[in-house]
């Protein structure tokens, strides 16, 4: 990685999930800066750098929950992946859903991958660590 810090955008409304995901990501060795937005509308403002998000960095990786207030995560994904400027940003779906229809629809809309939040806390932490290992350690991101 040539960039000093990876920019991660976490789009997640549940405070418990936000705490757990940011905590687990910050345990990893890759230098990163994590910004959090709690609803789909704020996510779109952030990605388009509108309003209070003027001047934010373009994320190198997005971690997106599907069930979000105001604007649904599915709509955020669709908007990201049909926008010529934003579509190259890899989007990791991290959802409580394991519904085949949600999984298929996410890949159809070009989500980069789909992960289901485990119920077990240790498994959940391990999965978030695996996101870091793979997406920030193995994969070449468009930075």
């Amino acid at each position: 990685m040539t960039s000093p810090k990876l920019q991660v955008l976490l789009i997640e409304d549940n405070p418990g999930d936000v705490y757990l995901i940011t905590h687990a990501l910050n345990l990893g060795a890759v230098p990163k800066s994590i910004d959090v937005v709690n609803d789909g509308e704020a996510a779109l403002s952030y990605l388009h750098r509108r309003g209070r998000f003027r001047g934010v960095h373009r994320p190198d990786l997005v971690v997106l929950d599907l069930n979000l207030p105001r604007v649904d995560g599915r709509k955020v994904l669709a908007e990201l992946k049909t926008n010529p400027v934003l579509m190259t940003i890899p989007v990791v779906i991290l959802s409580s859903s394991s519904e085949p229809s949600d999984i298929a629809a996410a890949y159809e809309r070009h989500a980069n991958c789909f992960l289901t939040k485990p119920w077990d806390l240790i498994e959940y932490l391990d999965l978030v660590r695996a996101i870091e290992d793979y997406w920030m350690g193995c994969v070449a991101l468009p930075v």
Partner: peptide
């Protein structure tokens, strides 16, 4: 990524 590859290694 613009051609919708899921990951690039």
């Amino acid at each position: 990524y613009s051609l919708n590859a899921n990951a690039y290694i």
